[in-house]
């Protein structure tokens, strides 16, 4: 498959003005994205002021605290600090699992929508986007009401005789996972739909003519073609899940921090440790950039083959 788009000759007419046309975009990105990120980078190397704020003195204290455990009183020989790595690990597997579940449910959904007659597709897409009319906070709180011990889900299961006592879902990792999966599912459905919609179904017929089983067709024909949609959807689910703090806070009972809640507490909580919050954000950004970089490299190699 030629993945490359043909170069668009129309754009040549705008070539001289290209720099100026791009200017608003670059100004926006620079001012609202790069500048704040650079500011956080600088903050992460500053000294913490007591109770919020920073002192403009260079310090590696925040990174030291992230990676090295010097005991509760700070005078033991340094060991590897597992606390924050543990929080990252919990966030990563929650986000990873949410991505996988969204893919397992989102792919068939997207396939279903894309194979409807064109005039009904927009209705199905419309239905997928309806939850987005309601604020994420409200949706998360509603989920909490649904799954609480004496909420409708447990009441129904007990009325049907499936359960004798309520099955505790609220304030568990399961509830956090449910919240992430539910919140970000449409982010998976929409890109995959866009990819499947362009899929040429003659390829499936051709595969069938050549005695390919359904599995073989799926693995060797369909998935490689819609792969960009799957990857885009996975990134769109994984990245916000990684930094989520509403779901762990409201559904997980704020008992175990995820990265987002850890950072929030540094800026808003009693610790008031802005440099450390900035450092955690920088470590997170680095991890995400490395993952995206590896992906980009693998794409380039695949393209070169």
């Amino acid at each position: 498959m030629a993945g490359q788009l043909p170069s668009n000759d129309d754009s040549a007419a705008f070539a001289p003005a290209r720099v100026w046309l791009m200017l608003p975009t670059w100004a926006l990105i620079g001012f609202f994205l790069l500048l704040p990120v650079l500011l956080m980078l600088v903050y992460s190397f500053l000294t913490k002021e007591f109770r919020g704020g920073v002192i403009w003195e260079f310090s590696l204290e925040s990174y030291d605290r992230f990676f090295l455990d010097r005991g509760l009183f700070g005078d033991e020989p340094p060991k590897i600090e597992w606390t924050y790595i543990g929080i990252f690990w919990r966030s990563a597997w929650q986000a990873g699992l949410a991505t996988l579940l969204c893919l397992l449910v989102g792919f068939p959904t997207a396939w279903f929508i894309a194979t409807r007659p064109p005039q009904t597709r927009s209705i199905w897409l419309f239905l997928v986007t309806i939850p987005y009319w309601v604020n994420l906070l409200i949706r998360t709180v509603s989920m909490k009401f649904l799954i609480r011990d004496n909420g409708p889900v447990n009441e129904l299961l007990m009325a049907l005789g499936v359960l004798d006592a309520p099955f505790t879902m609220i304030n568990t990792n399961f509830a956090v996972q449910l919240g992430l999966f539910y919140s970000y599912l449409p982010f998976m459905v929409l890109p995959i739909y866009a990819a499947v919609e362009r899929y040429n179904f003659a390829l499936t017929e051709a595969a069938a003519d050549l005695y390919a089983t359904r599995w073989v067709t799926l693995w060797l024909i369909v998935i490689p073609v819609v792969r960009p949609g799957i990857i885009a959807g996975s990134i769109l689910v994984f990245v916000p899940s990684l930094g989520a703090f509403l779901a762990p806070d409201l559904l997980g009972g704020a008992k175990n921090w995820m990265i987002g809640s850890l950072i929030e507490d540094q800026f808003k909580g009693a610790a008031g440790n802005w440099p450390f919050g900035a450092a955690v954000a920088m470590v997170l950004l680095s991890v995400v950039l490395v993952v995206l970089f590896i992906y980009a490299r693998s794409q380039t190699r695949a393209g070169a083959r």
């Binding site: 700070g74 606390t83 921090w257 009693a270 440790n273």
Partner: peptide, 17 residues
């Protein structure tokens, strides 16, 4: 004071990790 507060902050972080 600042040094003592740092200890209580550490206890809190260990509680919420």
């Amino acid at each position: 004071d600042q040094q003592t507060q740092a200890l209580y902050d550490a206890i809190w972080t260990r509680l919420k990790k």
